[in-house]
Amino acid sequence: MLKAFQKIGRELFLQGLNNSHSGNLSIRQGDRIFITRRGSMLANLTEEDIIETGIEKNDSNITLASTEIIVHRAIYQNTSALAIVHCHPPYAIALSLIEDDIIPIDSEGCYLFRKVPVLKSEYTIGSKEVAKGASKILKKYRLLMIKGHGCIAIGQLLEEAYQWASSLEHSSKIIYITRTMKPDFIYKKTKDYHKW
């Protein structure tokens, strides 16, 4: 388990999806959650950085868990996810500040996501509001953006959730590059956009 956390934690940093101490990872095992320690460096995780606590029930380890534990728990309580990646991809964050949803324009992004919802909240860190909103959205979507904050991606495995986060950032770069090259570029939403 530690190796999986180390691998994905390092990848997120190397790919620029996190800064030195941002982001958090978790997996679910039955009614237990294994989550990165508050303030840990995802690129350099050690055994002490993986904290085990309950999904429903608190215990003393809660004091060490990531600030976003409340959000991770809500997602596990309301979805079938077994792994969660939360990271801070800069292009996607920038887009989240100006778009209601992020709609990929590259073909891979279109296939993978169609659209990525942007969740708006007054409190964006360790927030009950985000926990409630994110767990509701992630019943239908595999990832979302918290406006101005970061991405939450879910999967059966950490690597799967990482892939969604990585692909979202890639799609966001494509949008940025395209708009830079052609500022008046407007992506026309398909008719069935709202059906997704």
Binding site: R38, N58, D59, S60, I62, L64, I69, I70, Y123
Partner: peptide, 25 residues
């Protein structure tokens, strides 16, 4: 207050278990 509410130690650990939250730890 935003940070006090966001931190699991001050928003869950201490409110729910009091200072003995540290015993097992």
């Amino acid at each position: 207050k935003k940070w006090i509410k966001a931190n699991p130690l001050t928003s869950i650990g201490l409110p729910e278990f009091g200072t003995p939250v540290l015993v097992n730890l």
